[in-house]
């Protein structure tokens, strides 16, 4: 490991011909997630030519353009479908998708389920800010019950979707959650997620003060970070809490960690079998 740390590493990976600061709002956590992703890839020593960042549409989709990897900004909800094609076409690549909560859970929900079920060797980052930010703050599947948004002016009527439970249910190989307040922990799980075989999902809780916070009693971006600091609790400690104290707490950490071979590994193993047979048959 090099002695240089933090943002100096990140600066090396940013596209120097792009304009900074980036387009995201002041205090938006997405930049922190991007920084964390860069440090994770750096710490794994993966050459940048081998990294493919596939982003969806929305605020999170804008991240891809800033980093000097192979970057693809796809259509709304479809990042995982492009990623699946890329991984199958060239399994040597490290394919990482960046999606928002509306992107991954609403319009792209089916793709998420099947990427997990198929166990395709892709790392999915779900940047959950509880809102559709880019389009001006409409409610998303992750918007908490009772929250005020542009499309739920009288309060969100349904319960927010639990990304972790969804991924677990769909059979993902590795499922973890972190927040942009607990950056070191987020970096650790992100690094692990990228290094694992098969499908890994990391939900990063990242606040949107502009579209969500302001309308829901978080006066400044800082208030949202304070909320994360207070609400987040390690999954181990969360499990020990009695039911009635779990209400407002946000378990973070690793929920599932398996090592099942990825879809692409199984596919290419099957192909290798055929090739062996042909060689044998040929003699």
């Amino acid at each position: 490991m090099s002695e240089i740390t933090g943002n100096e590493i990140i600066h090396q990976y940013l596209r120097h011909n792009k304009k900074f600061p980036h387009v995201l709002c002041a205090g938006c956590g997405h930049g922190i997630v991007l920084g964390t992703l860069i440090r994770s890839i750096h710490s794994l020593g993966i050459p940048r030519d081998d990294v493919v960042v596939v982003a969806g549409i929305g605020c999170s989709g804008r991240l891809a353009v800033y980093v000097d990897f192979n970057t693809i900004h796809t259509t709304h909800g479809r990042a995982l479908t492009f990623a699946t094609g890329i991984k199958m076409a060239n399994p040597k690549l490290n394919v990482i998708t960046i999606m928002g909560d509306g992107d991954a859970l609403s319009i792209g929900g089916n793709h998420l389920i099947h990427a997990a079920r198929r166990n395709i060797g892709v790392t999915a980052l779900v940047l959950n800010n509880n809102i559709y930010g880019m389009t001006g703050g409409q409610s998303s599947p992750a918007t908490p019950l009772g929250s005020t948004t542009m499309t739920s002016p009288y309060g969100q009527l349904d319960k927010s979707f639990d990304t972790v439970e969804l991924a677990k249910g769909a059979g993902a190989n590795y499922v973890a959650r972190g927040t942009v307040f607990h950056v070191r922990k987020l970096e650790k799980i992100m690094t692990e997620a990228i290094a694992r075989p098969g499908f890994s999902l990391v939900e990063a809780i990242t606040p949107c003060h502009t579209q969500y916070g302001r309308k829901n009693k978080y006066k400044s971006p800082v208030d949202m970070y304070k909320w994360m600091k207070k609400a987040a609790i390690s999954v181990e400690r969360y499990e020990e809490l009695p039911e009635d104290q779990r209400e407002d707490r946000l378990p973070i950490g690793v929920f599932v960690a398996k090592d099942r071979p990825g879809f692409e590994e199984r596919y290419f193993a099957m192909k290798a079998e055929f090739q062996k047979k042909t060689v044998k048959g040929g003699k």
Partner: peptide, 25 residues
């Protein structure tokens, strides 16, 4: 490479991804 996707939207996404990765898809 052959892959059955979850729907036609995903099918298009996957072949575009594969094409970007150098395949005739």
């Amino acid at each position: 490479v052959f892959i059955q996707l979850e729907d036609e939207i995903a099918s298009m996404g996957a072949i575009i991804g594969a094409s970007l990765a150098g395949r005739k898809a």
